[in-house]
Design a protein around this nucleic acid. Structure first.
Lengths: 244, 244
DNA sequence: CGAGAATTTGACTCGGTTCAAACGGTGTGG
DNA sequence: CCACACCGTTTGAACCGAGTCAAATTCTCG
């Protein structure tokens, strides 16, 4: 089932079998895309939205000098640009990190869902609000944490989210990001990311090599990143609590 | 009409007279609240949502040391915690800045709306996505701008939003925030906010005194803050374009 | 009028940037 | 199959923006 990871660990159980089927039947197209491929450009009108099936996607904005600020990292099960449905256009770019597989939904189809299935609609709405909750946490990260904390927090967040959809365990996961990418996500320099990674490694908290994150001390890392997974709205059965 | 400012300048025209009436009739209660009053505490279950009628409200999160990071500032017409309706609980606190007047909506009533009025529901959804768009811009502000730019950007954003609902003109508006408040919104120190304000004043860009913002050079301020109002999704008739 | 908060300014410190250079993978074309 | 080019990674040294600490001044409100 293509949409099996959607809201997994966040109340997907709350969807009836019929609703799950409606979602599944609403997929217009499944596509594979190469790394570093831009799906949507800021400002353009959009008629479809994208559910991420495999791989990683990011959203970002450019500053005056063309430097990027990531505003979101997406993992399988995320409805990456569902907000384009009510908004019609986006205020940021959307691009793949590594290679991905995505499912596309036509906005016309989504409109039908909103007209006929209020409860499913509310769950779709909820999924966009999860993104907003993560945005807020990113604001917190940039505003209150130093460089070390920011990187630690990001590693914790992605681990917790991947664990919820069964793509991470024992503190290990694949993350197709470079050090400059991390820098763009954390609002610091690529050079400084490197120094921070060395520190975190030396303190036996986490290592990041060859696109692989290995969290050696979850509690310690969560402490450095002041990470509390409540904002991810996982259900009680969800492994996000590993950090609690 | 209590709800007259809701989505004003953001496609409120798109609502039918009937829909506007439904919204108006859904108000459960109107209340006045004193400055610095906390409406919602993070984590608590919530059964109502709040439309801000008059005054200013902020949302914030605490770090380990109890220091606050503002994640949103709300102005009249904003449905401050509508996201609590699908989410059931919030990941942050909500508090007034100055004195406010608010309208309260029961979630049971909102549920009825989502079951019977898909189009109105979509506009409610849209309003929560506007908040998410502002969150993203805040991430950008914290990640890519220096202290000066952050303060400049914030002043620009609030001006553009107030102008859309008719509460600011000629670059002037009232903002019941202290310098420490600004600091909490911008991720810098209160002391440094003071220095930045002096700089901006000396450069004849903007002054902030006695809860009053006076933008003397809109274009210059927008340039320092790398401010582009597109993310506010104003309509073409909207004064937000004053900064474009 | 007095208390407590907010504003303002100065001096010193420090985290993170900038600039620079070396080193390591990896894919491509000759 | 190797050479080269292009990234990404790593490290060092100098610099600077913002934080910290401290104290004086002004404002606000009971």
């Amino acid at each position: 089932m293509l949409t099996e990871k959607f809201l997994l660990g966040r109340g997907r159980e709350d969807l009836s079998a019929q609703e799950k089927q409606i979602l599944e039947d609403s997929v217009a197209e499944v596509r594979s895309l190469p790394p570093r491929h831009r799906l949507v450009r800021a400002g353009q009108p959009v008629q479809t939205s994208t559910l991420l099936l495999e791989g990683f996607i990011c959203r970002y904005m450019d500053d005056r000098d063309g430097l990027r600020q990531l505003v979101a990292v997406h993992i399988p099960g995320d409805f990456v640009d569902l907000h384009a449905f009510p908004m019609k256009r986006l205020d940021h770019d959307v691009a793949t990190l590594g290679p991905v597989k995505v499912a596309t939904f036509d906005h016309a189809t989504l409109k039908t869902i909103t007209e006929r299935h209020p409860h499913l609609t509310q769950r779709l709405w909820f999924s966009t609000l999860l993104d907003a909750a993560m945005h807020r946490e990113w604001i917190f990260r940039m505003g209150r944490l130093g460089a070390e904390g920011r990187v630690a927090h990001l590693f914790c967040e992605i681990y917790a989210r991947l664990a919820m959809v069964g793509l991470a365990k024992d503190g290990c996961y694949t993350l197709p990001m470079t050090q400059p990418d991390l820098a763009e996500a954390c609002g610091i320099t690529g050079v400084h990311v490197n120094r921070v990674l060395r520190l975190l490694r030396e303190r036996k908290l986490v290592t990041f090599r060859a696109n692989t994150v290995e969290i050696m001390d979850p509690a310690g890392l969560a402490s450095v990143g002041e990470f509390n997974p409540d904002y991810l709205y996982g259900t009680s059965a969800t492994p996000a609590g590993a950090f609690a």
